[in-house]
Design a binder for these strands. Structure first.
Length: 300
DNA sequence: CACTCGTGGAG
DNA sequence: TCTCCAAGAGT
């Protein structure tokens, strides 16, 4: 059970303040927030935004929507085109899963994005967050949408903690569900508004409590913003990791628009054994296609 | 549950 | 410079 403060902020007031703030300060101009944006556009934005800042997502999203305006358009393209168009958004397996998801939409959903969380969860690359977000933002279904921003805002306002624990647990989902407005439309607005508050004001480093609409209601702020004291949050190693080498290999294959000989890849890192291991893992993931034992390309 | 999987901007 | 971390998912 989360250690809730002695008195929780009155939820209706919290809802009103956060939603009011969103109407004033939210990035309502983002293309996937336009009322006429298709469900496919919303779906695409959610997958692209997994672990990638929106500022980098928007240009790629516009290009993808211009090129593949429907699931069928993407499904008809070679998966390698999706991987190349993914560019430097990071975690390129997301591009592959997006292509697979588009294929499933064509094969089993009449070329449409499914609307229920259950159907969405069955799609590759879609987890609890994305399923809830697409249901809510594209179809107006008031699911419990919990991402890193929501987790942080709730940890602070309701639990009085600087950060949530490293892993999302059941108690947190219950807390998020209980903090939602009962009314459908109000709940949908709350979902996007609280997420936006976490993205713009209640940020991880250097939260701008002076600009926060609920600073006077926030358990963490009222308590004097005590430092995080939970279990250590693991950092992300980078230099010398397989991720770095995989990234370098894929960068070369993206930029070459034809098959690349092994000689053009093997110096992607100092350790040749590591390079070959990473190349094999990219092939196993379906991100790279071996034409022979010595020529590689993005999958056709 | 703990770990892996890219990339780049901010402080 | 270096650390942190971002609309997470899959194993």
């Amino acid at each position: 059970m989360p250690s809730a403060p002695v008195s929780l902020p009155p939820l209706p007031l919290l809802h009103e303040r956060v939603s009011g703030w969103y109407a004033e300060a939210g990035r309502t101009h983002l293309p996937w927030r336009e009322p006429d944006c298709s469900a496919w556009g919303v779906f695409l934005s959610e997958v692209m935004s997994q672990q990638t800042p929106l500022s980098r997502v928007e240009p790629a999203w516009r290009e993808w929507m211009r090129r593949w305006p429907t699931p069928a358009d993407l499904a008809a393209a070679p998966p390698g085109d999706a991987v190349r168009a993914w560019g430097r958004l990071g975690y390129p397996r997301r591009a592959l899963r997006l292509h697979e998801a588009a294929t499933v939409m064509v094969q089993r959903h009449g070329g449409e994005v499914p609307s229920t969380p259950e159907e969405l969860l069955a799609l590759p690359g879609v987890g609890a967050y994305t399923a809830a977000a697409v249901s809510c933002f594209a179809f107006g279904i008031p699911e419990v949408v919990v991402d890193t921003n929501v987790r942080r805002v709730l940890a602070r306002t309701l639990e009085g903690k600087a950060f949530p624990n490293p892993t999302l647990n059941r108690a947190e989902m219950v807390l998020a569900a209980e903090s939602m407005p009962a009314d459908r439309d109000t709940a949908n607005t709350w979902n996007v508004a609280v997420m936006e508050l976490g993205a713009l004001v209640c940020v991880a480093r250097g939260p701008r409590c002076d600009d926060c609409p609920v600073a006077d209601l926030c358990a963490w702020n009222v308590a004097g913003r005590p430092a995080y004291d939970g279990p250590p949050r693991r950092g992300q190693a980078w230099h010398g990791t397989d991720r770095q080498v995989r990234g370098e290999l894929l960068r070369r294959l993206r930029e070459a628009h034809h098959a690349v000989p092994l000689s053009g890849l093997e110096d992607s890192a100092d350790d040749r054994v590591q390079v070959m291991r990473c190349l094999d893992s990219l092939v196993a993931d379906g991100l790279v296609e071996p034409l022979s034992r010595s020529r590689y390309r993005l999958p056709a």
